[in-house]
Design a protein around this nucleic acid. Structure first.
Lengths: 139, 139
DNA sequence: GGAAATGCGCCCACTTTTAACCACTTTTTT
DNA sequence: AAAAAAGTGGTTAAAAGTGGGCGCATTTCC
């Protein structure tokens, strides 16, 4: 179960750290692609395969725009011995990543944010609405 | 059943005590995350798993904002031999914790407050409104 | 086609943070 | 009053994070 927040910086060689706690759980291959709300997702192999299989019996024509986003932007990354990954430019662009990043755990996957964008998103989050959602599911 | 109020201070290494009475009941792993009203929640493993399982068959896109708040800010904490926990900075920031904290029991979970914020919140508590709520639910 | 340049993986060294210990004081219990 | 439990403080060791150097491969330019 992935959880927590981890702050890192992209170094001069454009490498970024990835939480060791997450790596232990996700295995040594990460699948990273564009995600909603100006951030990136990272899946471990197992979870990625699960996601992948959901397209098995989806009609191609119906799936094509989703495939373009999800698969067309996906990369398979292997962290180096220190646990760092190298994000391709187009993914960094999507998330607005320049220097400071935030990696958060979200149960079965991780999200990678530009720190500034993350905090902006936090400020704009309607906590009361989330609280109502949780009440609705009788949390 | 968790109940009562316990006052502690965060030491120079930013460790904070956690009531031994609670630990006995909650087990030796705590799950702490952001909560509403400027405080933190702590769950024992059993309660956390119960909560966790409710996301099992919830569609990802629908759940993502709740996951971001709940899991993105959660930590799994194992108290040291003396029963202390180490809160990450982002959680302390959320609750406004600097030095003095208050831990209160709330039936199945515990809340962690900054002492000042807690007393402020107490002063602002509208007992009459709570009384009406209790009347409504035919308490 | 060959030499310089660039990018990237791999490794090593250093710093910082976190976890694990140990010792001691205070409070509670019997 | 003695013993046990709870709470506090500090030291040490391990792990995580960060920066940079080196070499190999591909690319680019002459």
């Amino acid at each position: 179960m992935l959880m927590g927040r981890f702050d890192y910086t992209v170094d001069s060689k454009s490498r970024a750290n990835f939480p060791s706690k997450f790596r232990n759980e996700m295995g040594d291959v990460l699948y990273v692609t564009k995600w909603f709300d100006k951030c990136l997702v990272a899946y471990g192999k197992e979870q990625w395969d699960k996601l992948d299989s959901r397209f098995d019996d989806m009609p191609t024509v119906q799936a094509k725009d989703m495939l373009r986003v999800l698969y067309g932007n996906a990369v398979e990354l292997v962290p180096d011995k220190q646990g760092r990954i190298l994000l391709p430019q187009y993914l960094k662009d999507h998330a607005g990543i320049t220097k400071d990043i935030v990696v958060i755990g979200a149960r079965s996957y991780a999200e990678i944010w530009d720190k500034e964008a993350y905090e902006e998103h936090q400020r704009n989050t309607d906590f009361a609405a989330i609280e109502r959602k949780l009440i609705d599911m009788e949390f």
